[in-house]
Simulated assay, not measured.
Amino acid sequence: MKKTGTKAVCLLLSGAIGIGGFGLFPEAQADASAAKNVTQASVAAASVKTVPQIIKQVSPSVVGIIGEVSLEDMEDWDSEGGSGEEGYNLTHGSGVIIRSNGWIVTNAHVVDGMQNIQVVTSEGKSYKVREVYSDPLSDVALIRINVTGLKAAQFVSSDKTALVGEQVIAIGTPVSLSLRNSATVGIISGLNRATDARYRLIQTDASINPGNSGGPLVNMRGEILGINSMKYAAVDIDNTGFTIPAGTVQYIVDQLFDQGEVIRAGLGLELEESFSATVGLPSDDPLTVMEVLSDRARKAGVKEGDVLYSVAGHRITALVDLNELMKAYRPGQAVRVLMQSGGDIVERRIVLTSE
């Protein structure tokens, strides 16, 4: 996938071997508030650990994933291959234990097309994967091994806790399975990045390499901020990696657990964003309806050439914005949309379809 204007390739990072006042007076309230802030800051500071402490805490929840992929599929992988039996090459990635009874989250591109999948724990034990559930659109997958008593990782309670500039650690299996549970340190370089992904991502300069896919990006409290997924790779481009935020991972995982697949809500429209939004320039330009795909949208009066300004009161200027908003809805629900149609600004009610 080419990144417009940078001559950089955005690579999926799988690897191959050859995730109160209490009624006080104003002055007393101010003192109490200041004391509360000091206490909260002290608690937050106390919860921050050293890099070695974080690695020791989180590493038991990080696994290596290895399997076979055909030589034909190997052409789509972004790393060198190695020899295998019957025309197959071994490939590998990383994963994060999310339940003690064997459930692991990883990237869809790690396990899609992979056969005879094995999970290798941090202590070097190997287990055969029994179940695989994959969602390629989000690049999130769930796999299960038949073992209990695993150490499950702790994810952040909210993506809003992440801050640009805060120190983070990436843990995974770069380059070779023999390097599993390698750790690199960096910062959060940016939030809400719109790349070639369906949803917004976290950007980090922590070094991530082929094989790190599916591994975690961890804050200094030992919480998983997200699942490492891809990076820009080109001459003169260094340490520009991207992570699927924990909130998106949870959205996908919940549906995979509930129904074995992700059922997304959509407007039933093919939309096109402006040139400014496409190349990443600040833009207030709306989206244009290129095609009406659902009968529900057609019955609502939407036509080709209409312009979409907002959905459920939220201004929409990029497709990724709409995708993020739709995570809060399910097919069959109705939303109000503000559009321009035939020169008039109109509000329409669209019943959401499944994508």
Rank of each mutant, 00 (worst) to 15 (best):
G23I: 05
V58Y: 00
G82E: 03
G15D: 04
V69I: 12
W77C: 08
A34P: 02
I17H: 15
D31E: 10
G82M: 01
G67K: 06
L11C: 15
L13N: 05
I19K: 04
E75K: 09
F22W: 08
A30N: 15
A30D: 14
E72V: 08
A34S: 15
V63F: 02
E68Y: 13
A34L: 09
I65A: 08
Q57S: 07
A45L: 06
Q57V: 01
E72L: 05
N37G: 13
K56N: 06
A35I: 03
Q57H: 07
L13H: 03
Q29M: 10
I66V: 15
Q29E: 13
S83K: 10
D76Y: 12
E27R: 09
P26K: 05
T50M: 02
L24R: 14
V63I: 03
A16H: 05
D73F: 11
L71A: 06
S79H: 13
I65Q: 10
C10E: 10
S61K: 07
G21L: 11
Q40T: 13
G67P: 02
G18Q: 15
A34I: 10
E27L: 08
V48N: 00
D31F: 11
D73P: 02
E75Y: 04
V63D: 01
S83A: 12
L13K: 03
V48K: 00
V43D: 06
L12E: 08
A28N: 10
S83M: 14
Q29K: 11
A44Y: 11
G20W: 06
S14F: 04
S42A: 14
V63C: 02
D31M: 12
I17L: 15
P60A: 05
G81V: 05
Q40H: 06
S47P: 03
D78W: 08
V48I: 02
Q29H: 04
Q29I: 03
C10G: 09
P60M: 02
S70I: 02
W77V: 11
P60F: 05
A46E: 15
G21P: 08
M74H: 07
G82N: 03
V51F: 02
S33P: 05
D78P: 07
G18I: 11
G81T: 13
Q53V: 01
A35P: 04
I55Y: 01
V69Y: 04
E27V: 11
I54V: 01
T39P: 04
V69G: 08
I66G: 09
S42H: 11
K49H: 03
S61R: 12
I19G: 14
W77H: 14
Q29R: 05
D31Q: 13
G18V: 10
I17Q: 08
M74W: 05
L12M: 09
A28D: 15
E80R: 10
D76T: 13
D73A: 15
S61A: 14
G23N: 02
A41M: 12
P60I: 01
I17K: 07
G15H: 04
G21H: 13
F25C: 10
Q29D: 09
